[in-house]
Simulated assay, not measured.
Amino acid sequence: MHLFIFILVYPFIWVLSKLPFRVLYFISDVVYILIYHLIGYRRDVVRKNIKIAYPDISEEKLNTMMRKFYHHFCDIFIEMIKTMSISEAEMKKRFVFTNMEVPGQLLNNNKNFILCLGHYASYEWVLSIHSHHDNKGYAIYKKIKNKYFDTLIREIRGKWKTNLVVNKEAKVKITEVLKEKNDKAVVFGFIMDQSPSNARNKHWAKFFNIKTPFFTGVEDIAKEHNLPLLFLGTKKIKRGYYESTFTVITENPREHKDYELTDTYAQLLQKQIEIAPEFYFWTHKRFKFMKGLDD
């Protein structure tokens, strides 16, 4: 069945990837009408998440934010498909890194590091970072159940010399890579804003108006291997154009108290979201577990 579905869908995806952006964004607008107005995909989840983050938001502003979010939500998947055929020159024009000298200094000094970011703006096109340097990159991701689509996603995301690692294998893989005698430093990328499915034994970080559990695996790995930790914040300039900026969280993770790095990450992520909250992925159950700030 998985193969049958893939055979049906893949030709459509391939054709889409060849279309110019103006046509793709027209299609995105049509899809927006379907999933927001007609189907109402996860609309209740998005509404609940935004109201938790912004408890005083008016109904008018809430509805405006939701409409903007769903427009962006559709654009992101269209842009991911376009990655199949987009040229390196076009990508560099549309996705700009404002301060590549920050990671460049670490790489030039042969220092491996971790890059963390949230499901914000264009997290898919962030992978084009590897077209700006010759170092190996490893991106941690959640495996798709349909193995054929999983292979396709790996190919799309691997276009910019990125090696995808299943999240459950990340810790072992990173240890293996670091034990190898690499001629050049390597980069490990994590998206780490999801609330864990199990709130026990996770760190409760302040995030907007509440405390919610964050994964601590990135902090644990950074301290275990003493890897510098960088945050990547992205701005959507206009439709199809983005700018990303690196912020150094720490170059010496072992010098920090437990969970201090996770707390810093949570605040950097929140600060980024507050600039333009419509570009955050509100469809995930961000606040499945919650505590008051005084708890």
Score class of each variant (00 low, 15 high):
F214I: 05
A205F: 04
D220I: 09
L230E: 04
S244Q: 10
K238Q: 11
N209D: 14
E243V: 08
A222V: 03
F246H: 09
T212L: 09
I249S: 01
A222G: 08
K206D: 04
I210Y: 07
Q194L: 13
V248Y: 15
K211S: 05
T234A: 14
G233S: 06
E224S: 07
F214L: 04
H203Y: 15
D220N: 12
G217C: 12
L230A: 04
F207W: 12
K202I: 09
P228T: 00
K238P: 08
N226I: 03
W204Y: 10
L232D: 04
S195T: 09
E219T: 01
K206C: 03
R239V: 13
S197I: 08
V248I: 15
E219I: 00
T247S: 06
T245W: 09
K235P: 08
H203P: 09
M192A: 01
F246P: 06
E243L: 07
N201T: 11
G240V: 03
K236C: 05
S244R: 12
W204N: 05
P228F: 00
I237R: 15
P196L: 13
N201K: 15
P213G: 14
E243F: 07
T245Q: 15
F208R: 06
K202G: 08
K235Q: 14
I221R: 01
F208W: 07
P196W: 14
N198W: 09
T245C: 12
I249A: 02
M192P: 00
Y242T: 04
G217H: 09
R200G: 13
D193H: 06
P196R: 11
A205Y: 03
D193G: 08
K223G: 02
T247I: 04
F246M: 06
Y241D: 01
P228Y: 00
I249K: 00
N209I: 09
V248Q: 15
A205P: 02
G233R: 02
K235W: 13
T250W: 02
T212F: 08
G217N: 13
W204D: 05
I210W: 07
A199I: 06
E243Q: 12
D220K: 10
F215K: 05
P213D: 13
H225K: 10
F215R: 07
P213E: 13
T212K: 11
T250V: 06
P228S: 00
T212E: 10
F246R: 08
A199N: 13
S197T: 12
K202M: 13
E219G: 00
I249G: 00
I237V: 15
I237W: 14
I210K: 11
K202N: 15
E251T: 05
H225Y: 10
E251F: 01
H225D: 09
P196N: 15
P213Q: 13
R239Y: 11
E243H: 11
N226A: 07
E251Y: 02
K235A: 11
A222D: 04
T216P: 02
N226M: 03
M192H: 01
N209L: 10
H203I: 12
K202W: 08
F231E: 00
A205G: 05
T245E: 15
L229W: 04
I237G: 14
A205R: 04
K206I: 04
Y241N: 06
G233Q: 02
L229I: 05
T234G: 10
N201D: 15
G233V: 01
A205T: 07
H225V: 06
F208L: 06
T250Y: 01
T250H: 05
H225A: 07
F231P: 00
T247M: 03
K235R: 15
P228N: 01
D193R: 04
